[in-house]
Write a protein that binds this DNA or RNA. Structure first.
Length: 616
RNA sequence: GGACCCGUGGUGUAGCGGCCCAACAUGCCAGCCUGUCACGCUGGAGAUCGCCGGUUCGAAUCCGGUCGGGUCCGCCA
């Protein structure tokens, strides 16, 4: 029996419970101990008159001691039941109290669920934090989720395959964590950023439907939703269309959500599908939070020729003018608006225009004199504003204007509490991403996703250059308009992950590589195995990868993935519990044929007598 | 690489140039207590204020640096 399942039915039985002392209440000759394990808490009563030995032992017990208690399960005295405990109708009358392990006073309290504890302490003593209700419940949630994922995939005929952790380094994408080879001095392995190539090779290998809970590592700076190592649900399927993949993943996501957090409703089924273009135009983001409105509105036509130079010049230069209406902020103070302006500038805007709509409908705005009263009111209407709102306007190159207002929308949505029901799960698909973006520095096209994403059939003819020579790309090429068979799954404004139908046809692959400035031979260096494999009968295939940590965090209503990881790292990549990374022993380097040269430090120190510390 | 926020008994906070060798709560230790469940009551111990340097007659408090944690930009799909 665990500490979570004693019920009135069990009264009269002799039971033995083991667990941690959650709390003790010593009344002298009578001692109450709350015994805790991961299933719950049961009250143990030790009465000196019933067992003097047990009472003596219980007197010495302290919080977090580990005990084994034998006794009789009894109904509590009438009036002393505790409705807040699942086991609160009963108690264990302790006859034998055995201390299995004593405990030092923990560095933070484990029995106060609400207590805010310093993050450093929580990470250093993670095994203690794991005993606390909140983290324990989140880990249990994640475990339910992993189980559901596994069962759903197996039920649909997927094969679970593990892929290696020591693979080949490729310079594309994120920075690799590298592992020096001892057997082959001077050579390195890389830890996988994802099993991307391997899962495609599994398709060529005939594995047909594959999934894996894959550990991935990227040596890049962290964020709340991004750490150096993370877990991804990796899926790949053969002989499928974009529609097939999206349909399976959607059904799987619904099933997994339902089995993990049955109390949380899914906003819209089927999941809304937005094209990339739509997502950017309406929400200013490729991971739109569609739980509230405040959508972007293109007011370019309306303000054309207003005489406000910023608008006119932006429009003349091919840019766009977007507006959002912040509900109820019409009485925003000047300093509040200045703060918003600063925020928009930090996001890359050149400035922020605004119109405040009084409750009376009167419009107050520094650009009112350019627009005139009528046009100002029209702008308010077009932006979706009503009396009492604040209209924010950004004019710029379309991507800049969209992203700035998209970020401000999210920030204002948070501040104004626009999400009506925080418990609702709002999934959405974003698809039809552009294949390429123009890389001005190298004067070539660059894959927006990965170089093996396929092009939409109807856009296949666009994979061409204006010059006719695919190796001489130009920003004006039709290729810039080509859309990929690529899709992202989003949840409540987070990107859960994305995937694509891959290119497996050699002719398309060659044209695509050329647009990106790569020769087939050059690509063979990086993706040799995959390109070779494609020559031995490759099935058309596609898949997706979803971030398990992000998904678990969202299902657990957390804003940081550390909250759903058992042993996470800090923002600077440290494990405060194990104290990793740690300095290497010189002999470890020697064995690998390596020598540490010293930290790459910037040496400015101009004007000061002291230079930076020199590494020896 | 950059910006911002935080660092005070075990823990969480207050104090923000002298009233502070630092206050409150909780935890801890001891004593009392047979129906508690954040048990209660009485007493006690415990921090030179992350670290280094500077300003000042005087620094927890101001300044610079540094270390650690966090958030964001760059970076990352």
């Amino acid at each position: 029996m665990t500490c979570g399942d004693a019920r009135p039915d069990h009264v009269g039985r002799e039971v033995t419970l083991a667990g941690w002392v959650h709390r003790r209440r010593d009344l002298g000759q009578l001692i109450f101990l709350d015994l805790r394990d991961r299933y719950g808490v049961t009250q143990v009563v030790v009465d000196a008159r019933e067992s003097s030995g047990a009472h003596e032992a219980a007197s010495a017990v302290r919080p977090e001691f580990v005990l084994r208690v034998r006794g009789l399960l009894a109904a509590r005295l009438p009036g002393t039941e505790n409705a807040r405990l699942a086991t609160g109708a009963v108690e264990l009358r302790g006859l034998d109290v055995e201390v299995l392990s004593t405990a030092k006073t923990p560095p933070f309290s484990i029995n106060e669920p609400g207590a805010e504890v310093d993050e450093t302490l929580r990470l250093r003593y993670r095994y203690l934090d794991l005993r606390r209700e909140a983290l324990r419940d989140r880990l249990l949630l994640r475990s339910r989720m992993l189980r559901a994922i596994s069962e759903v995939h197996h039920a649909h005929g997927f094969v679970e395959v593990e892929t290696p952790l020591l693979i080949k380094s490729t310079p594309e994408g994120a920075r690799d964590f590298i592992v020096p080879s001892r057997l082959q001095p001077g050579s390195i392995y890389a830890l996988p950023q994802s099993p991307q190539q391997l899962k495609q090779l599994l398709m060529v290998g005939g594995m047909d439907r594959y999934f894996q809970i894959a550990h991935c590592m990227r040596d890049e700076d962290t964020r709340a939703d991004r750490g150096p190592e993370f877990t991804q649900l990796d899926i790949e399927m053969s002989f499928v269309s974009e529609e097939d993949v999206m349909r399976f993943v959607e059904a799987m996501a619904i099933e997994v959500s339902g089995r993990t957090v049955p109390e949380r409703a899914i906003a819209l089924v089927p999941f809304p599908r937005l094209t990339y273009r739509e997502a950017m135009d309406r929400f200013g983001s490729d991971k739109p939070d569609i739980r509230y409105g405040m959508e972007l509105q293109d007011i370019g036509e309306l303000v054309q020729g207003s005489g406000f130079r910023v608008f006119d010049e932006t429009l003349a230069g091919g840019g766009r003018v977007f507006a959002i209406a912040a509900p109820g902020r019409g009485r925003a103070s000047r300093s509040e608006i200045d703060a918003l302006t600063d925020y928009s500038k930090r996001l890359g805007a050149k400035g922020l225009a605004w119109l405040a709509v009084e409750e009376s409908g009167e419009v107050r705005s520094p650009i009112a004199k350019f627009l005139g009263d009528d046009r100002a009111r029209e702008v308010v209407t077009a932006a979706g504003g009503t009396p009492g709102d604040l209209i924010l306007i950004v004019a710029d190159r379309d991507l800049v204007a969209q992203e700035v207002l998209g970020s401000m929308r999210v920030e204002l949505g948070r501040r104004l509490g626009l999400v009506a029901d925080q418990s609702v799960l709002s999934y959405a698909w974003v698809h039809r991403f552009p294949m390429y973006q123009w890389d001005e520095e190298h004067r070539r096209w660059d894959a927006t996703h990965n170089p093996f994403s396929g092009v939409m059939a109807e856009d296949e003819p666009l994979l061409a250059t204006a010059s006719g020579d695919p190796a001489r790309p130009d920003q004006a090429d039709p290729a810039g308009r080509a859309r990929a068979m690529q899709y992202d799954l989003t949840l409540n404004g987070w990107e859960l992950g994305g995937g694509s139908i891959r290119i497996h046809r050699r002719d398309l692959l060659e044209r695509s590589f050329a647009l990106m400035g790569h020769s087939m031979e050059g690509m063979r260096d990086k993706f040799g195995a995959l390109l070779d494999a494609f020559e031995y009968g490759a099935p058309p295939h596609g898949g997706i990868a979803l971030g398990i940590d992000r998904w678990a965090a969202l299902l657990a209503s957390q804003t940081n993935i550390r909250e759903v990881m058992a042993f996470p790292k800090t923002a600077s990549g440290s494990d405060l519990m194990l104290e990793a990374p740690s300095p290497a022993d010189p002999s470890q380097f020697a064995e690998l044929g390596l020598r540490f040269v010293g930290p790459a430090r910037r040496s400015d120190g101009a004007g000061e007598g002291e230079g930076p510390k020199q590494a020896s």
